[in-house]
Amino acid sequence: MGIAILGRIKARLKNNSAAVQEAGRQTQPCAISCKLETEIRYGKLRGWAYNVHNPGERLTVQLCRDGEVLQEVLSCRPRPDLAHVIPTPFDYGFAISLPVVDCRKSPAIFSLRVAEYPDAPVKNGVVTLAMCDKDSVVRGACDKQLNGRFINGWAVDAATGQGGRRLVIMIDGNFLTEVIADAPRHDIAKAGLGEVNCGFRVRLPKYFFNGNSHVVMVIDSVTKTVLDNTGVKFSLADIKNGLERERSRLAGEMYKSYLRHFKGKMA
């Protein structure tokens, strides 16, 4: 009987302690510093979040769409690069995987919030994935056909026509790689769409040669613009056809080189 009474006393003390902590949280002045960085890096949305008046509190950052929580992470990643912004020990960073959805018909809009303080403002807290259009800051596209085992495409600044855009390559919703669109694309320059050095070329890993269909998306890391002809499925048959086209192209180039060499000998 004495043990039962002791257990009830401990439970009551525990409940009282939790109530006191909750009351302290409600009465304590709240100043949440939460910011989402504008650039996607390695397929993730990155930023930081902490309570100015209670730095020891670890905040939960949620990624939402239409009020539904898609992902949530704890802001506890080291960010020593932000020593001038956040207090020691600088472990208030977070990284959320970029959600990949079909935005060919309409833009996909996501928002960030702090779970413990849902009304706290989040700087740059709205993320929009949208396809290229006439008003986009960035324009570009993936080639409609695979070139061997490679995904090819181009991207330029819509205002200046300059290349060098940083692009995020996603396949089946998973991060594959980042590329800089600075490879020569003379066809784009001839068409007046941008400068010559605006192309990219990404090799598909072998594990995608499994007979299943896959979805590739190419996204500008800064503007979150999705390039044209992405979000489209490709299959093993498309890869095989691409390999055949690549072999034919190489054979044609070798034949032309042989003819040039032969004509030079005859002359």
Score class of each variant (00 low, 15 high):
P87S: 12
R104D: 09
C132F: 03
S75Q: 01
P89V: 07
T88A: 14
H84V: 09
Y117P: 06
A115T: 07
V114H: 01
R77L: 12
P87V: 10
C76M: 09
H84K: 14
F94Q: 03
D119Q: 07
S97A: 15
V100G: 00
I96E: 05
Y117N: 10
R104V: 04
F94E: 06
P78L: 03
H84F: 13
P118Q: 08
D102Q: 02
I109P: 03
I109V: 15
I86A: 09
L98N: 00
D91V: 09
S106E: 13
L82I: 03
G125A: 10
T128H: 02
S97M: 10
P80H: 10
N124I: 05
L112W: 00
N124R: 06
S97D: 14
D133C: 15
T128D: 04
I96R: 04
N124S: 10
S106A: 15
F94M: 05
E116W: 04
V85C: 13
A120G: 10
P99V: 05
V122E: 01
P89D: 13
P89R: 13
S106D: 10
L112E: 01
I86Q: 07
K123H: 08
P118K: 08
A95L: 05
A130M: 05
P80K: 11
P80Q: 11
V101S: 13
S97W: 02
I86E: 07
R79Q: 10
P121T: 11
D102S: 04
I96Q: 06
N124F: 03
F110Q: 04
P80V: 09
F110M: 04
L129M: 13
R77M: 11
Y92A: 08
Y92D: 11
V114G: 08
T88P: 07
L112A: 08
D91N: 15
A130E: 10
L98F: 00
